[in-house]
C-alpha cells in the first residue's frame, strides 16, 4: 500500500467525505480539498500518490488546475468529468491527465481506475507480470532494461526518456505508451492491447483515452526529433506502430 495519500479535489464536500470513507476502507490514505486553489496549496506541502480531480468546480476549474500542474508536478491525475462532455475529456487528457472517469460513477469503478494508475506509476515492472498478456504476443512484456530505437532513449527503471541530450517530458501514461511501442518497434499493436498495457484496464466503447495519449507522444516526438516524419503510424482498423529508422 502506498504511504502517500490520495488527494480528492472536488467542490462537493459530502461526496468527498463518502468517497474518502470508501477508499480508506480499502486501505488508502485520503485527503480532500474543495477548491483548485486549496489543491495547489496542498501540493506545495506534500506530494500525493494520485490526484482525483473534478473538472466542474466553481472558481478555478479542474482543467485550469491541470494546466498549472504540469510540468512542475508529475503527480498522476484521474479526472472526473461530466457525462456527455467529450470535449472536457479530450482536453483533460491533452493537458496531461492520466485517465478519466465519467461522474457520477460507481465507487467500485473509481477504485479500479485508482488501482490501475497507482500500479503503473509506482511499481511498473512487477505489474507487467501481473497484467494479462495476450497469448499471441510472446514478446508482450513490459521493458525492464533501457531501450534505444530510432534515436530515442528510454529507461524504464529511471522512468526517463530523451532524444539525444534533450529530455522528453512525459506523463506516466505517455511514458508507458512510448515504452511499449519501443519494446515492440515495427510491430502493429492493437488498441485493446495497448490500453491494457498503458492504462491497465480494458478498452471501452467511445473510449478515446489511448488515442489522445498516443497523439501527445507523437507530437512530443516530432518536436524533439525535429522532423516532419510521423514516427508513430496509425494502422487503419488495427492500431499503432512505431516506425524504425533505417
Amino acid at each position: 500500500m502506498p504511504t502517500k495519500p490520495i488527494l480528492l479535489v472536488d467542490d462537493d464536500i459530502e461526496l468527498c467525505a463518502l468517497l474518502a470513507d470508501y477508499l480508506r476502507h480499502e486501505g488508502y490514505a485520503v485527503d480532500s480539498v474543495y477548491t483548485a486553489e486549496a489543491a495547489l496549496q496542498w501540493l506545495e506541502q506534500d506530494t500525493p500518490a494520485l490526484m482525483v480531480l473534478d473538472v466542474m468546480m466553481p472558481g478555478q476549474s479542474g482543467l485550469e488546475l491541470l494546466q498549472q500542474l504540469r510540468p512542475r508536478w508529475q503527480v498522476p491525475v484521474l479526472m472526473l468529468t461530466g457525462r456527455g462532455e467529450a470535449i472536457d475529456r479530450i482536453l483533460g487528457l491533452e493537458m496531461g491527465a492520466d485517465d478519466y472517469l465519467a461522474k457520477p460513477c460507481n465507487p467500485r469503478e473509481l477504485l479500479a481506475r485508482i488501482r490501475a494508475i497507482l500500479r503503473r506509476s509506482t511499481d511498473l515492472p512487477a505489474v507487467a507480470g501481473q497484467a494479462e498478456i495476450p497469448a499471441d504476443t510472446p514478446d508482450g512484456v513490459f521493458p525492464r532494461r533501457p531501450l534505444v530505437v530510432s534515436g530515442i532513449y528510454l529507461d524504464p527503471g529511471m522512468r526517463e526518456a530523451r532524444v539525444g541530450d534533450q529530455p522528453l517530458v512525459l506523463t506516466s501514461a505517455e511514458f508507458n505508451v512510448l515504452a511499449y511501442l519501443m519494446q515492440h518497434a515495427g510491430q502493429v499493436l492493437g488498441k485493446a492491447e495497448l490500453t491494457r498495457w498503458v492504462l491497465h484496464r480494458e478498452l471501452g466503447a467511445y473510449d478515446r483515452a489511448l488515442d489522445v495519449h498516443v497523439s501527445r507522444v507523437r507530437q512530443k516526438l516530432a518536436q524533439a526529433l525535429g522532423s516532419e516524419r510521423d514516427w508513430i503510424k496509425t494502422v487503419r482498423g488495427q492500431g499503432y506502430q512505431l516506425v524504425r529508422s533505417e
Binding site: 462537493d12 459530502e14 461526496l15 463518502l18 470508501y22 460507481n106 465507487p107
Partner: peptide
Amino acid sequence: ARLQAAAG
C-alpha cells in the same frame, strides 16, 4: 454521485 458513493 453521493447516492452511488453511499451505495458503495
